[in-house]
Design a binder for these strands. Structure first.
Length: 267
DNA sequence: CGTCCACGTCTAC
DNA sequence: TAGACCTGGACGG
């Protein structure tokens, strides 16, 4: 998905678009098999967004003068390619699957592969604290659970476990581990004890990516548009993932793990 | 044309 | 721990 950095940018984008707008309907694209929420809100509403790891929360609230009080949280995940886009009246966006209508246009959830999902609720119980916005609890959650079998697995795999590393995805794990000097195939418990800077890197790396305008990767469209002037910096950030000079291996979850070729794999 | 690959979960043997 | 869920871009013949 869009990983931690892109989720924050998505929330920023939704907030920027929606700050002065009133929405009056939700439309679900019938091709999408997800939950049909189009009849759930029958009064005009506002939208505010917040992210936590790889989850996005849209807070939908009725207007102060509404005869019906509504306050609901639409919890979303972006899948591999999900993003939001403002679409002016008279235009149709391909792969728009959830559409929030206002008089001036609509805010569309665009997702080519349809891996993104939504439901009413709250932050996922099985996902850990956000490494950027809630760093203390992020560290605490890991340290409190370090004795568990989950941490017997290689650090490169555990970094993708959303129970502890909410928001870390395939490019971030590569960039984080590339910046430590431990074998990425070492058991996670040992790795975190030998290289405690991993905790800080889990905040630093996504924060860098966020400040650079998010992943310049083909499936994900930066909602703020192309940041061409930032490409040089992005290339300086993305040192490992997708770099032909790096080594790669398919991990036990079927994902390609990119790493420094000086390490020997144990997988 | 075809095959491989992609920033992620899910759920079913 | 495989598939399943999806579309489309890159690249090879």
């Amino acid at each position: 998905m869009p990983e931690l950095a892109e989720l924050i940018l998505t929330a920023d984008y939704v907030n920027e678009i929606a700050k002065d707008k009133v929405f009056y309907a939700i439309v679900k694209n019938p091709v999408h098999k997800g939950l049909d929420i189009s009849q759930d809100i029958q009064v005009p509403f506002t939208i505010k967004a917040k992210s936590r790891g790889k989850e996005l929360k849209l807070e939908l609230n009725s207007l102060p003068d509404s005869n019906l009080y509504i306050s609901a949280n639409l919890m979303m995940t972006m899948g591999m390619a999900g993003h939001f886009k403002w679409v002016k009246n008279g235009f149709v966006e391909k792969h728009a699957h959830l559409i929030f209508k206002s008089d001036e246009g609509c805010l569309a959830f665009v997702d080519v592969r349809r891996f993104g999902k939504w439901k009413w609720g709250y932050w996922g119980e099985d996902r850990g604290p956000d490494p950027i916005n809630d760093f203390q609890n992020f560290v605490r959650n890991i340290k409190n659970n370090l004795h568990k079998r989950d941490f017997d697995k290689p650090i490169c795999e555990v970094l993708m476990n959303q129970k502890y590393f909410n928001g870390i995805g395939n490019y971030l794990r590569a960039e984080i581990l590339y910046r430590t000097d431990i074998n990425p195939f070492m058991p996670a418990r040992q790795a975190l004890q030998l290289a405690p800077e991993i905790y800080k890197l889990c905040k630093w790396a996504p924060l860098q990516a966020y400040n650079l305008g998010g992943g310049q990767l083909k499936d994900w469209q930066n909602p703020f548009g192309p940041y061409k002037e930032m490409m040089k910096s992005w290339d300086e950030f993305m040192l490992c993932y997708g770099n032909k000079n790096m080594a790669k291996v398919e991990d036990r979850n079927g994902r390609t793990f990119w790493y420094d070729p000086k390490w020997k794999t144990d997988i």
